[in-house]
Nucleic acid binder design. Structure first.
Length: 746
DNA sequence: ATCTGGAATCTTTTT
DNA sequence: GATTCCAGAT
């Protein structure tokens, strides 16, 4: 479309180099060989951008004699990183990029040498392992995830004596995270705070950051923020990394936030050997701080940048592309771009309108079976995408009932399970005794008779002495606030940890043995097994799986330390464990679908207020993001695309009838074939809430399943979160959230 | 200190 | 609907 002209590519590539360009279209080839200044590759969905990136890296190594050690490539997931490393390895030789393999041929990441290919977070964590002392953090720092961050925020709220009802841990953690994504420190935040709530947050933010530092812990955002801080603060460090990373390449540029942008700018500002790849139409992480402007404004920040657009699609049929093109064309804030292919029109898009979510799930499951039976498409090449995780349950149940094998990606994640977090918290305390959040987590888990009063007394002591929580435990007998029995219990706890640490420090134990030792010595496993409930046995099973994960990790990285294991766990994502399995249908959220592709894609729940999500309906910017999400989802499909909606749907404990998604109306009718399933039958129209417009009003008589009949006296609260004051005939006045209360008008 | 059951709370999406 | 929270009992 618009080939790079500023490139100063060598007149004739070597024979070797020519092979790298074979099979590439002119734009792709131009992107591969480009040299001289920053390069922005606008890569439409399915335009072969991974191929371009890998070939470009190979080109740099082979034709430009770039040192693989001097290449920093940033990907969106660890899985993508490994794939990229492997693909580059296949082009230039695995030894060059730092891949080694074990006896079974599995890729084994080498700790030293080779290219840096990883996510932003993993790269920063790796960098900080070396440089943390400069910032006054221990090298064995802990990484706090969202849950830990909320816990810590909760502790800070408590210590500041704020009302946890008005200033919630999660709310604060979210606000702090948003600030950090934007590189706003607590001083700046405090200055900008112009209302009561923000001033409270500012106070918590300050204390929160102090606590993190004392615990030698970085939260997720800190990995980025502190790396930026490090590079801004120390010229010699910046110079060293600039020199080291002679080439910087970033994938999924449209989903970078301010902190990531700044990091890239710092590293590449001088040498300007920067390649970014992205597609503004696929920006779907605004809520996480991604700034679309990073891609829209790239030319402003790097005026000498070359822009190459890849619009030729190698994945989907023209029908699917036309569908996606038509939908995304409704967005105002975008650079126009039209995907095309010469693969032909292919099958029409199938529309199915279900009675309810059960009918919808049955349609999907039956269609998947039918495609498999007719040998058209194996189930493993089909995927179902939904907007929210809550929608997966009915799909799962239906698949089980109809005997369709499936795998689910996302949802409640393994590492978020309580028992896993408990055990990891023990491991974290062993590695980093200053980690107060983890220490408090395990203080009384399993129960050992240490309650809230004891914890408070220990906290006070720690605050007075300025030491860690664990240090306060260690000096329990000096603590006058503690009853003798509590002193005994706390001392036992300290002994337990010391015993574990001695065993670990001896260096004889494999990671797996350490995991087992923890659950044995703490009595955690014994307690679960004694409980004999299905749930407890499941938890026990999960712990064993964690031991298995530890063993796998050791086999990939034989000399791995406990700290490295923990870091790995902190940075893996759900996507990383996804393995397209040839035989099973895949279920996942649309967000998780990013970067993947399937022969057949079902997008379910295409109703206004499910998708687009109701929280986006009033906000034009949010709605555009939903539309981009729709575009991402549609362009995952290679051959067939199904779009389904349901007349009525029970979600979050309430049934509602939502109109078909506005995105459906944006699909040209001539591309669509409506399908009515054999089992289709007119179902009873559900009586229920119809979104805010059709909502209840003051004076309405209502019926509540628990409180019975009543009358609405007033409606107040924040928009979108209205609260109704209802006087129930038998139960008196209650305040209920309008959006969630299962009330109907009568 | 811990257990319990009923009530309140909340749900986008996640590196 | 499912988890989390909290008061009151043990």
């Amino acid at each position: 479309m618009c080939p790079a002209t500023t490139s100063t590519a060598p007149a004739a590539p070597s024979e070797d180099g020519a092979a790298l360009l074979a099979g590439l279209n002119p734009e792709q080839a131009a992107a591969v060989v480009h040299s001289g200044g920053p390069l922005l590759i606008v890569a439409g969905a399915g335009s072969g951008k991974t191929r371009v990136l890998t070939h470009r890296i190979a080109w740099l190594i082979r034709e430009r004699a770039a040192d693989p050690m001097g290449i920093l490539a940033i990907t969106f997931t660890n899985k993508a990183a490994n794939e990229m490393k492997e693909r580059v390895g296949a082009l230039v030789g695995e030894r060059l990029v730092g891949i080694t393999r074990d006896a079974e041929g599995r890729m084994r990441p080498r700790r030293w040498g080779g290219m840096w290919v990883s996510t932003f977070h993993a790269a920063c964590a790796r960098l900080l392992r070396d440089e943390a002392p400069r910032l006054g953090y221990d090298r064995s720092f802990t990484i706090y995830d969202a849950d830990d961050a909320a816990r810590l925020a909760g502790l800070c709220i408590k210590d500041l004596g704020l009302d946890p009802k008005r200033v919630t841990p999660r709310g604060v953690a979210h606000a702090i995270s948003a600030a950090k994504n934007d590189l706003v420190d607590f001083d700046t935040y405090a200055l900008r705070a112009d209302n009561w709530y923000e001033r409270q947050i500012a106070d918590v933010y300050r204390l929160y950051q102090e606590r993190l530092h004392r615990a030698s812990a970085f939260d997720f955002d800190d990995l980025l923020v502190k790396t930026v801080e490090l590079l801004q603060l120390y010229d010699d460090v910046l110079a060293a990394y600039r020199e080291r990373f002679a080439h910087v390449l970033v994938d999924e540029w449209q989903d970078t936030n301010r902190a990531q942008y700044e990091l890239v700018r710092l590293l590449a500002r001088e040498h300007r050997r920067l390649t970014v790849v992205g597609d503004g139409d696929q920006s779907i992480y605004r809520f996480r701080g991604a700034d679309v402007r990073n891609i829209l404004d790239f030319d402003k920040d790097f005026p000498d940048a070359t822009r190459i657009t890849l619009a030729r699609n190698y994945r989907s049929t023209q029908t699917i592309l036309d569908t996606a093109n038509a939908v995304i064309a409704h967005n105002v804030g975008r650079i126009p771009k039209r995907l095309w292919t010469d693969e032909g029109a292919g099958a029409p898009v199938v529309r199915y309108t279900a009675d309810n979510e059960h009918d919808e799930a049955a349609f999907v499951a039956e269609e998947v079976s039918r495609l498999a039976e007719r040998d058209e498409v194996p189930s493993g090449d089909c995927a179902v995408f939904y907007r929210t995780n809550a929608q997966s349950r009915v799909l799962e149940e239906t698949c089980i009932r109809l005997g369709v094998a499936y795998q689910i990606v996302g949802g409640t994640r393994f590492y978020e399970r309580r028992e896993i977090r408990d055990l990891l918290a023990y491991l974290r305390v062993l590695v980093n005794p200053a980690d107060d959040v983890s220490a408090k987590r395990v203080l009384n888990v399993p129960r050992r008779g240490i309650g809230a009063r004891t914890e408070e007394a220990l906290d006070l002591f720690a605050g007075r002495e300025g030491g860690s929580f664990l240090a306060a435990c260690r000096r329990a007998e000096e603590n006058h606030l503690l009853a003798p029995r509590a002193v005994g219990a706390v001392t036992d706890f300290v002994r337990l940890l010391d015993g574990l640490r001695t065993a670990v420090d001896a260096g004889e134990l494999a990671l797996r043995d350490i995991v087992e030792l923890v659950w044995r010595r703490t009595g955690y496993m014994a307690e679960l097994e004694a409980e004999r409930t299905v749930e407890a046995l499941g938890r026990a099973e999960n712990l064993r799986e964690l031991a298995g994960v530890a063993e796998d990790f050791t086999s990939l990285q034989p000399d791995a330390t406990l700290g490295e294991f923990l870091e790995r766990i902190a940075l893996v994502t759900e996507q990383d464990s996804f393995d397209a399995d040839g035989s099973r249908l895949t279920l996942m959220t649309m967000h998780n679908a990013k970067g993947l592709e399937f022969e057949v894609v079902f997008i379910v729940g295409m109703e206004d207020s499910v998708f687009p999500h109701h929280r986006s309906l009033g906000e034009p910017e949010e709605l555009e993001e939903e539309r981009r999400l729709c575009y991402v989802a549609m362009t995952r499909a290679r051959r067939r695309l199904y779009l389904t909606n349901a007349w009525s749907r029970t979600l979050f404990g309430g049934t509602s009838a939502n109109p078909p998604s506005r995105f459906l109306k944006e699909v040209p009718a001539e591309l669509v074939e409506a399908r009515s399933a054999d089992h289709a039958r007119p179902g009873p129209r559900a009586v229920g809430r119809q979104g805010a417009d059709d909502g209840l009003g003051v004076g309405d008589r209502v019926l509540h399943p628990t409180f019975g009949p009543g009358r609405i006296l007033e409606i107040g609260g924040r928009p979108g979160n209205e609260e109704a004051l209802v006087r129930f005939d038998e139960y008196g006045a209650k305040r209920l959230l309008l959006a969630y209360a299962p009330m109907i008008r009568r």
